Simulated assay, not measured.
Amino acid sequence: MSEVRVRPQRRGVSAFLSALGTGVMAGLTVLFVGVIFATVAIPFFTGSTALTVKTSSMEPAVPPGTMIVVHPIRFSEIEPGMIVTYQLRSGEPTLITHRVTQQQKLADGTGVLITKGDANPAPDVDPIIETQVRGTVRYAIPYIGWVTTLFAGETRTAIVTLVVAGLLLYAAWMLILSVRERRKMGR
C-alpha cells in the first residue's frame, strides 16, 4: 500500500504574495493581449492604421495621447460631423485629425471638406481635397498612444529591459518560494 501525503496549504504572507503575483500577471496579460488586439490585429485585418494624437486640438473628444484607428473611406462617403485624418499638404507625411464641419464644391466642381479641431476657435484655413484624406477615425483608445510612443526610439530599450528584469525577478521569487515549500515538506 502506498502512502498518501497531504500537502499543507501555504499560509500567511507568502500565500498572499503568490496569489497577488498570479492575479497581477493574469490581469496584465489580459490587458496586454486586449491592447495588442485593438491596436495591431484589428487595424491589420481591416486595412486601417493606428496613430497617436499629439496635440490638444480635438479635446475633449480626442485628447493628446489617444491612439486612434483610422480606416480608409471614399471621399464621397465623408459627412459633416465625422473625424478625418488628412495630410496637411498632399504628398507630405504630416497628418492632422479634425472634425468635418462642411462639404463644399469649388468653382471647377471639385469637392472639398472644411475641417475644424473641436478645441480650436475657428475652422482650418485651407479646405481639404480628396488626395489629402487618409480616412476616418473608427475608434480611439485614451492614453495608449503615450505607451506606444514610449516604445518607439531610444526609450524602447530601457522599457523592455525593465519589463524583462521585473519578470525575471518575479520568476526568481516564485522559484524561491517553491524551493522553500519543498524543503518544508521534506522535513
Rank of each mutant, 00 (worst) to 15 (best):
M1L: 01
S2N: 02
E3M: 13
E3P: 04
V4M: 08
F16I: 07
L20P: 00
L20N: 01
G21A: 03
T22A: 15
A26I: 12
G27S: 15
L28A: 11
L31G: 00
A38R: 13
A38L: 11
V40Y: 09
V40T: 10
A41H: 09
G47R: 06
S48G: 13
L51R: 10
T55P: 02
V62H: 00
V62F: 07
P63Q: 00
P63C: 04
P64W: 00
G65P: 01
I68H: 05
V69M: 06
H71G: 05
E77Q: 11
P80D: 06
I83V: 11
I83L: 05
V84F: 07
G91I: 07
T94I: 11
I96G: 05
R99V: 10
Q102A: 11
Q103I: 15
Q104E: 15
L106Y: 08
T110E: 14
T110F: 04
G111L: 08
V112I: 14
V112G: 09
L113G: 08
I114R: 13
I114W: 05
K116I: 08
G117P: 04
G117S: 09
A119I: 04
P123Q: 14
P123E: 14
T131D: 15
R134V: 12
T136C: 08
A140Y: 03
A140Q: 14
P142M: 06
Y143N: 06
W146F: 15
F151W: 11
A152W: 03
L168P: 07
L168M: 15
Y170K: 00
M174P: 00
M174G: 09
I176C: 01
S178C: 06
